[in-house]
Simulated scan of single mutants.
Amino acid sequence: KMLLDNDGSVRVARAIQAAFPDAPVDIICIDPIRNLFDGGPDGGGENDNTAMMFFLKDRVEVLRDHIDPDCGIILIHHTKKLSKQQVKEDPFLALSGASALRGFYTSGLILHRPDEDASERKLEIELRNGPALPSKLIDKVRGQWVEINPMNERLVRAEVGAKHDAERDRKGGVIVHLISEQAEQGKMFTLSQFAAKFENKGSLGGQTSIRERLHVLATKGHVKFVRGDQIRDLGLKRDRSKFGYLCVRDMRLRTDREVVDDETGEVCPAFVRVLPTDFMCPQSGALLPVENPEVWVDQDGGEA
């Protein structure tokens, strides 16, 4: 294990200079402090203010001055267990170890999760110079941290609202699964007939509730439609409804034909892929033709 003591500091400085021979580095990052901590001749730990100040001034600052006095330093440190109320009142009390660390940095960041059931994190900011900055709500989207508009967060009955959101998502998932499952049994439905068929099944509620969920799913692109000649090609009954038959991603329709497996000789029902012909415009709600049925595009930007 390497410590940032006399020998360790020399080794780190040489390694940095060897890796960046042309120009000095802009930032030195120590991640985390605990792995490199050297409390000095007295051997103090992270909880000792004297030992912490020795590490910061006689180790970290000396290392920076040797490499480039103008470069910045990022120190990554662990936090300790605090109640949510304590974190809310003063987030930086969560910094583990000696309080001397808090008086050393020019700006501090604490990342914590206010709600264990939610993916969002809260970024608290503390500055020694300049005006205070408000905390930020962030989340990881497609591998990148992005800031979330705090106006989108509930202030009243947040837990109840989250349960209602989860229930709506559950109903949407059940509907998509049922559409796909029924197709594999050789059945496809129009929007109205699906709502009538599955009323009060799977805890979906009444017809109106199901139709509203289907409208939301269609607007988001999770449900699309099959109309026109494609209906005849699939062997379905001609339908005069506005939307035609419901279609979801990777949907297969069981047919009356049978096929024989070349390897086992087993007789199995034949399936055909169901590709959408139309989708619901998220702006107007009008049905528009699908440009490429082979590529399923969700209105939130996803493709498959």
Results as ranks from 00 to 15, higher is better:
Lys1Phe: 14
Lys1Asp: 15
Leu3Lys: 07
Leu4Asn: 00
Asp5Ala: 10
Ser9Gly: 04
Arg11Gly: 01
Ile16Phe: 10
Ala18Ser: 10
Ala19Val: 06
Phe20Val: 08
Pro21Asn: 06
Val25Gly: 02
Asp26Asn: 06
Ile27Met: 15
Ile27Asn: 05
Cys29Ala: 07
Asp31Glu: 02
Asn35Phe: 14
Leu36Gly: 11
Leu36Pro: 06
Leu36Ala: 12
Gly43Met: 14
Asp48Val: 13
Ala51Thr: 05
Ala51Ser: 04
Phe55Asn: 00
Lys57Phe: 07
Asp58Trp: 08
Val60Gln: 01
Val60Tyr: 01
Leu63Gln: 01
Arg64Val: 04
His66Asn: 04
His66Leu: 08
Pro69Arg: 08
Cys71His: 07
Gly72Glu: 05
Leu75Ala: 05
Lys81Arg: 13
Leu82Gly: 02
Lys84Pro: 05
Gln85Glu: 06
Asp90Trp: 04
Leu93Pro: 10
Ala94Asp: 13
Ala94Trp: 06
Ala100Gly: 04
Leu101Pro: 02
Gly108Tyr: 03
Leu109Ile: 15
Leu111Ala: 14
Pro114Arg: 09
Pro114Trp: 05
Pro114Gln: 03
Pro114Asn: 06
Glu116Trp: 09
Ser119Cys: 08
Arg121His: 04
Arg121Cys: 11
Glu126Trp: 04
Ala132Asp: 11
Leu133Ala: 13
Leu133Asn: 11
Pro134Lys: 15
Pro134Glu: 08
Asp139Thr: 15
Arg142Thr: 07
Trp145Tyr: 10
Val146Gly: 07
Val146Tyr: 02
Pro150Glu: 06
Lys163Ala: 02
Asp165His: 00
Asp165Gly: 05
Ala166Arg: 08
Lys171Ser: 02
Gly172Thr: 04
Gly172Val: 02
Gly173Val: 03
Leu178Trp: 08
Glu181Asn: 12
Phe189Cys: 04
Phe189Lys: 09
Lys197Leu: 03
Lys197Phe: 06
Phe198Pro: 04
Glu199Thr: 13
Lys201Arg: 15
Ser203Cys: 06
Thr208Arg: 15
Ser209Thr: 13
Ser209Lys: 14
Ile210Lys: 01
Glu212Asp: 14
Arg213Gln: 02
Leu214Ala: 11
Ala218Val: 00
Lys220Arg: 15
Gly221Met: 09
Gly221Ile: 07
His222Cys: 06
Gln230Ala: 15
Gln230Pro: 02
Lys237Tyr: 08
Arg240Glu: 08
Phe243Cys: 03
Leu246Pro: 02
Leu246Phe: 10
Cys247Tyr: 00
Val248Lys: 03
Asp261Lys: 08
Asp262Leu: 14
Glu263Leu: 11
Thr264Gly: 02
Gly265Ala: 11
Pro276Trp: 00
Pro276Asp: 00
Pro282Trp: 12
Pro289Tyr: 03
Val295Ser: 00
Ala304Arg: 09
